[in-house]
Every structure is written in structure tokens, then in C-alpha cells.
């Protein structure tokens, strides 16, 4: 039963004051039999009231506004969480039966959402290159594991070549990216074989084990395995998810789980820094002193509602029923 203290800081700074900021955060760990939240402290610039609700996928989502003029918005989340390892599926049921049961739930909620490919033009290419047929000849569990490994082997882990807006098509061409891209590609592959798959956002807490994804939020995938349920697969680290991952949210893709997003009004450019640090029971702190913030590319999170009059005009003339 590992216990982690996680400190996650998101900071936006603006050159000149902005106002009317509206924000959404998905920073509340899932609470279930494998994950217990002991404590969560959330501090936000201006101390706005945060309203928390459950979204369609069952995630806890917080919303808040900050209308006064401000030059900084800092969201500081400190959590203490205990995770339980979950035994892996036994995989004893014959594979045909397993595939048939996946076929049977295709059109059921919630699986229908987790089987639909989200605008991906290269599915056929992926099917060809991965020789999709071979995965249908093994059990869904083995198929999922092999595809997880395929992504780990064939894609390079490089920071900075992609952004939150990079599509699976682009990732497939790049054959590189970070955890979020690895997860997006694995989602496409699992879905093309008929295994329901969902995106997971959270933290990884490897304690000395040198896994990828530390110092920031992490992302991986859950595949639906018959007679078992949702099984976590981390393609960035080529492993099953046991008790070193802390789950924040699930969804069809990143956009359902975006940890922090917001809009504001103002002419200012913003810069965004994010840092995550984990401290362990044995006293080890991943980032020894304070949480280190790293600058993020500008496409991330906050959108400025600027005045593009052409776009505005197009939108205005379109609205008609």
C-alpha cells in the first residue's frame, strides 16, 4: 500500500493585467477501492469559490472564475493518496468467448464512446503496419499487452516535438512524442481491434525507478478486458498499471481530461509553467526542495478570446435555423 504526497502547481503569468477569467480543473484523484485520497489542499490565486461536479465520465471537475484584473493565476494542488495494487486478469476464458463478449457490448454505454475512433485518417495504415490480424488471434489481454509494447518499441520518447493539439495522424507520422501521444496512439490501436479503450490522466510515482513521466502530469490508457474490467496500460513505460500510478480522470481522449484549462479577456500574452513533485514514505522527494516549474509551449490550456473580426463575422452569419 504505497502512499504518496503529490504537489502539482500550474502558473499562468501575463505581461499586462487580464480579467474575466473562467477556468476548469480536473485535478481530483479518482476515489475507489484501489485509490484512497487522504487529503487534498487546493489553493488558487484570488481564492475563488470552486464548484465541483461529476462529469459524464464520472470525473470530478472543478470550475471557478476570476473576474478582477490580475497578472498571475496560480493553481496549487497538494494531495496525499494511497494506492492498492490490483491483481492482473487471469485470462482463463477461451479467446473466442472473450472476443464475442466484446462484440456483444459494442453498442452499449459506456463502451460505444470508447470504441469510436476520433477523426483518424491513418487507421488503415496503422492496421497494415501493425498487421492487425495477428492480434485477433490471441486473447484481448495479450493483444492489449502486445500493442502496448508495440507503441513503446516503435515510438521515440521526445519532449517538445508535439503539443496538446497534436492529432494521432501527426503522431503516427512523427513516430515520437510524450506520454499523451503514446496514449493517443494506443487508443487508436486498441479501438481498431475492437477493444474499448479510454484515456487516463494522472501522476506517476516511481520512487527511484526512473520511469518516464515524472515532474509533470502523466497519461496512459485503460483497456476493457472481458470478465475483468478496465486494465491500465502505460505505453510510455511498457507496463501494466499497478500501484505507482495515481488516476485523476478518464475520457475519450486528452480533451475530456485536460487537467487545467481556461479563458480570459485581455490583450496580453501569457506564459504557462507547470510542475509536479512527489514525496514518498521513505522520505525521498523527487524534486528535493520545491516543486520545479517548467515553461510550457503556448498552445497549452488557456485560450485568449481575442478579437478576430473575420472569424467573428463568419460565426455571426452562420447561425441560422
Amino acid at each position: 500500500m504505497p502512499q504518496f504526497k503529490i504537489h502539482h502547481v500550474t502558473r499562468y503569468t501575463y505581461e499586462v493585467p487580464v480579467r474575466d477569467s473562467a477556468n476548469q480543473i480536473i485535478l481530483f484523484p479518482v476515489k475507489d477501492e484501489f485509490q484512497t485520497v487522504l487529503k487534498q489542499d487546493l489553493t488558487i490565486t484570488g481564492e475563488p469559490a470552486v464548484d465541483i461536479y461529476k462529469d459524464y465520465y464520472g470525473n470530478e471537475v472543478g470550475s471557478f472564475m476570476f473576474a478582477d484584473a490580475h497578472t498571475e493565476l496560480k493553481i496549487d494542488s497538494k494531495i496525499e493518496v494511497v494506492t492498492q495494487p490490483r491483481p492482473l486478469p487471469t485470462d482463463s476464458v477461451p479467446k473466442e468467448e472473450q472476443w464475442n463478449s466484446l462484440q456483444a457490448i459494442r453498442s452499449q454505454v459506456p463502451f460505444i464512446d470508447f470504441l469510436k475512433q476520433e477523426s483518424c485518417d491513418v487507421v488503415d495504415e496503422i492496421k497494415r503496419d501493425t498487421q492487425v490480424g495477428q492480434y485477433l488471434k490471441v486473447t484481448p489481454l495479450t493483444a492489449a499487452q502486445k500493442l502496448n509494447e508495440y507503441v513503446y518499441q516503435e515510438f521515440q520518447y521526445i519532449k517538445g516535438v508535439t503539443s496538446v493539439e497534436t492529432t494521432p495522424d501527426e503522431i503516427w507520422k512523427l513516430k515520437a512524442g510524450v506520454c499523451q501521444d503514446f496514449a493517443h496512439i494506443l487508443l487508436v490501436m486498441l479501438r481498431m481491434t475492437g477493444i474499448p479503450a479510454r484515456y487516463v490522466s494522472g501522476y506517476i510515482c516511481p520512487n527511484h525507478n526512473g520511469m518516464r513521466g515524472e515532474g509533470a502530469t502523466h497519461a496512459w490508457v485503460e483497456a476493457y478486458i472481458p470478465n475483468y474490467g478496465w486494465l491500465g496500460l502505460d505505453p510510455t513505460n511498457n507496463c501494466f498499471v499497478k500501484d505507482l500510478h495515481v488516476r485523476l480522470a478518464v475520457g475519450r481522449s486528452f480533451s475530456d481530461c485536460s487537467p487545467v484549462k481556461g479563458t480570459y479577456k485581455g490583450t496580453s500574452n501569457h506564459s504557462l509553467e507547470v510542475g509536479v513533485s512527489v514525496s514518498y514514505e521513505d522520505g525521498h522527494v523527487q524534486d528535493d526542495h520545491a516543486t520545479v516549474l517548467t515553461a510550457q509551449p503556448n498552445t497549452n490550456g488557456l485560450q485568449k478570446s481575442d478579437e478576430n473580426s473575420y472569424r467573428r463575422y463568419l460565426e455571426m452569419i452562420q447561425q441560422q435555423q
Binding site: 474575466d20 477569467s21 473562467a22 477556468n23 476548469q24 464548484d51 470550475s63 472564475m65 481556461g262 479563458t263 485560450q303 478570446s305 481575442d306 478579437e307 478576430n308 472569424r311 467573428r312 460565426e315 455571426m316 447561425q319
Partner: peptide, 12 residues
Amino acid sequence: PNSVLGVSGIMN
């Protein structure tokens, strides 16, 4: 997110 006609946070 690119809409300039709406009101941010109105759904909340």
C-alpha cells in the same frame, strides 16, 4: 475555444 460570440463559464 475559438468562439468569440459566447460567454466563458456560462455552462457552469
